[in-house]
Design a protein around this nucleic acid. Structure first.
Lengths: 197, 197, 197, 197
DNA sequence: TATGAATGAGATTTCATTCAT
DNA sequence: AATGAATGAAATCTCATTCAT
């Protein structure tokens, strides 16, 4: 919508941040553009200087949200990690994202689908990228013999993301428990199962 | 709201069904009372003979949705199942619920929290009941030595429900793979983990 | 938008009427939906019971406006009129429409083109019908030798409608002059010209 | 608003031109100041160096539009033309104006009345001048016996301008027919009528 | 039980305009 | 002369809800 000068970027990012916070707190539909504006200390109409529409604001939040996840995942894959280590790091990162960037996580998780299919291209692209990377990671682990044989990789990936998102729901009712303990157990369930023997 | 004559029950359930379908498809906020009415072939205003308000319709859907889960969970616990068997049955039941009653599952999963805390009593009660039952089940399994030692039961339960809900997201983009195969793998991940050795 | 019961028709027509009046007075864009509502003694939002949108109201006005012109033109063509008589009757009818239904005439004349091309189908259809009828009439007159030879019929028709619309602009600054005198002169100009000899 | 240095004049005229184009295309109300600015490759706010307001831009366009018509009409009257010749020249000039300056013609024709009566002084003055000149011309023709007797001159003038404006509507849907042929027929209708005998 | 008609409060969006830089 | 940022007022439209019939 605008070329990005550094100064503009700063304000724009603040706008995205405000949108994330408001959407996370109230939910996309229940949130009003006026809430976002107020949080930015500007008037409602001025929001449209940053976003073409409320929906565009949501898209911006989602995009910004997933960008971080992708780049961390990328960095984990680039590093020298065993499969088990990688899984643990991703769980930890997800849980700590939930502390530091919870707004973006929640909005992405819960409200992404509000954007109508036709306009979901950008988000879908990013989302696909993320899943593709994960699948690559599982694939490589499989070839190194780090994964149990005979399991469909797509389902494994999905089971893993399901676990991650259950962590998200956990965050909402979190009783202040040590993050690392929780992360350890989550990854252990995924890696080694819950069943004795 | 009304005494339940058989005939009334039938129409009322159709109304709940319609609400579930509409909420699931569009999301609670994006859905209009008019959409529900249209699906019932009645006029917008007439809806108010079935529901005191739109929110009441949501509550009815959620309640109806969880009722099934609870009663199935109850039946599994009453039967003579090992922990592993119980887990498998629950995964299968959830997946097949997603085929047969997906609307209710989706609405409960995604929109339950729209109902303001003050009015969420009924649903919370049911929800608590469900979690409590699950925790009991895990507790018993633990005492029988069927569960790995040293894991926090609350987290295990949550990890399990996270897995279940990942199945929900799977359902939405399902590539028609045999339900039992999928269920097997999902439970295997939970029970035995993904990691070789 | 609604099935037409007689009672509904009456109210609906009143709504179209109000829209016509407001659009004619202020112009489509300068007019607010609230103005129309006020004229109907209902609240702004209630307008949308009758019209899907402000634009739909405009379309309704235009359609209603041209309907009368077409049916009168049709009746003139069905009667036994010489070309000169027909022209005169049409001029008179147009001028008196301007007294009795000026709102519709003005709106059709000035604001029809606000409706975007894609949605102008209905109006264009009616408009084409009107022009087609006129062309038929001129064609027949031509064959009976009532028209000067060597003139392109399309241009003649257009010159005639131009004259009619100049009558419309006349109406706006009308000084109370006898309608029949004016109509006579207008048709005379068209039929016999302004130039001596 | 500014003293007119040659350079300023040039830019100013470009601005008027842009406004004319935009108003003609979208209509005054539907057109935004931003559209005009974009066409000039400047930013919205910068427009206000050329026009005090959007309305002032419209006024400028109208004034510029009619200036040409008046000066041509003046020149025709100053020359030695019979009434029939004068009419023909005016029709031709109008039609070719529609090719070369259609924006100004259209805007003047359709949107002049947007300017509120209080502020319409300038335009009205010019408009009156134009009509007055035409009436003078007809009056003189009448005295020379070039006009049919017994016709009200005001109506004749108006019938003539109606014809001219019908040419305008013709222009919009023009099927590219030779301008002179069209002009000939338009003036013939006005001068000699359409009716045989 | 059902509906037609209306309401009213609020939501998003648009846009001419201003002004410091 | 130009712009980036913001404003504020208004405008259209939506929608859950009500109620007389």
């Amino acid at each position: 919508m605008k070329e990005r000068t550094p100064k503009y970027d700063q304000r724009y990012l603040a706008a995205v941040d405000a949108a994330a916070a408001v959407f996370a707190e109230k939910g996309y539909h229940a949130a009003g553009t006026i809430d976002i504006a107020e949080r930015l200390n500007i008037k409602q109409g001025s929001l449209y200087y940053y976003f073409r529409s409320k929906e565009a604001a949501l898209e911006a939040v989602c995009l910004e949200g997933i960008r971080h996840q992708i780049s961390y995942l990328q960095s984990v894959m680039d590093g020298e990690n065993s499969f088990a280590e990688a899984i643990q790091k991703l769980v930890i990162y997800t849980l700590s994202s939930l502390e530091e960037r919870s707004d973006y996580m929640i909005v992405f998780d819960r409200h992404r689908q509000v954007i109508p299919l036709e306009k979901r291209g950008n988000i879908r692209d990013q989302s696909n990228t993320y899943h593709k990377l994960l699948e690559d990671m599982f694939e490589q682990a499989c070839q190194k013999g780090e994964l149990k044989p005979g399991q469909d990789i797509h389902i494994s990936v999905r089971a893993f993301t399901g676990l991650l998102s259950s962590a998200s729901s956990w965050y909402q009712m979190k009783q202040s428990i040590d993050l690392k303990v929780v992360a350890k157990q989550y990854s252990d369930v995924f890696l080694f199962g819950s069943c004795a023997v």
